[in-house]
Simulated scan of single mutants.
Amino acid sequence: MEAHKFKIYQMTAIFSMLFALLGFSYNVWRMEVTEENSNIRTACFEILLELSNLEQQIYALHYDQDQVAGNPRKGWVKVGLIADLSMLTKDSVKEEALELKDTWSEKWDKIEYDQTATSTVVTQIEAVRSEIKLVLSTLE
């Protein structure tokens, strides 16, 4: 009878340890996922702000002919920051941001006077924005 109680005690201890290990492992995994999602959200929100600022600069340069508010050098900085921040998000956002950088590098010097160049860059800004919205909607 004593041996039977000892085996029950051992099985209970082993089960308790396994249950604790499983619970701890799940908790660590969940915290990592939560942290990753938080980083992605923060980067996405920052990118959205930079996209809005870039779009505003483009409109100031093209429609208002304002060389100060629409300074393309500031646009280069914003496009670079958007590409850098996109590295903290999902691959789909990263791809669209790099496409924006490519589009910007081809069209930046024509934005002031060319409606097609302006529309092309703004369309790519919208593509990045749409991809961010999609990513944000899929986060847990």
Score class of each variant (00 low, 15 high):
M1T: 08
M1H: 11
F6E: 14
F6S: 10
Q10N: 09
M11I: 12
M11V: 14
M11R: 06
A13K: 15
A13M: 15
S16C: 13
S16I: 11
M17Q: 13
F19M: 13
L21C: 13
L21Q: 01
L21D: 01
L22Q: 03
G23K: 02
G23F: 08
F24K: 03
Y26E: 09
N27G: 11
N27F: 03
V28N: 09
R30Q: 07
E32L: 10
V33E: 08
E35L: 05
E36D: 14
E36T: 03
S38N: 01
S38K: 07
I40N: 02
I40G: 09
I40E: 01
R41S: 06
R41H: 03
R41K: 13
T42V: 03
T42M: 11
A43R: 05
A43Q: 00
A43W: 00
A43E: 00
C44M: 02
C44N: 00
C44S: 13
C44K: 01
C44D: 03
F45L: 14
E46L: 06
L48G: 09
L51V: 13
S52E: 08
N53K: 15
L54R: 06
E55D: 07
Q56T: 12
Q56N: 02
I58A: 07
Y59T: 04
L61A: 12
L61Y: 05
L61H: 09
H62F: 05
Y63H: 11
Y63F: 12
Y63C: 13
Q65N: 14
Q67M: 09
Q67R: 14
N71L: 11
P72Y: 04
K74C: 09
G75S: 07
W76H: 05
V77N: 05
V77G: 05
K78H: 11
V79A: 04
L81K: 15
L81T: 06
L81W: 13
I82T: 04
A83R: 05
L85F: 10
L85A: 07
L88N: 10
L88Y: 11
T89W: 02
K90R: 12
K90A: 06
D91S: 05
D91C: 10
K94E: 04
E95H: 00
E96T: 03
A97Y: 04
A97Q: 03
L98Q: 13
K101L: 15
T103G: 01
T103H: 06
T103C: 11
W104Q: 02
W104N: 06
S105L: 11
K107E: 14
W108H: 06
D109A: 12
K110T: 05
E112F: 00
Y113S: 04
D114W: 10
T116C: 02
T116L: 09
A117S: 14
S119E: 01
S119D: 01
S119A: 10
T120I: 05
T120F: 00
T120N: 09
V121C: 08
V121P: 07
V122C: 01
V122A: 04
Q124P: 08
I125E: 05
E126A: 00
V128F: 01
V128D: 00
R129S: 03
R129C: 04
S130C: 06
E131S: 08
E131H: 00
I132N: 00
K133H: 08
L134I: 06
V135W: 04
L136H: 11
S137L: 08
T138D: 07
T138I: 04
T138Y: 05
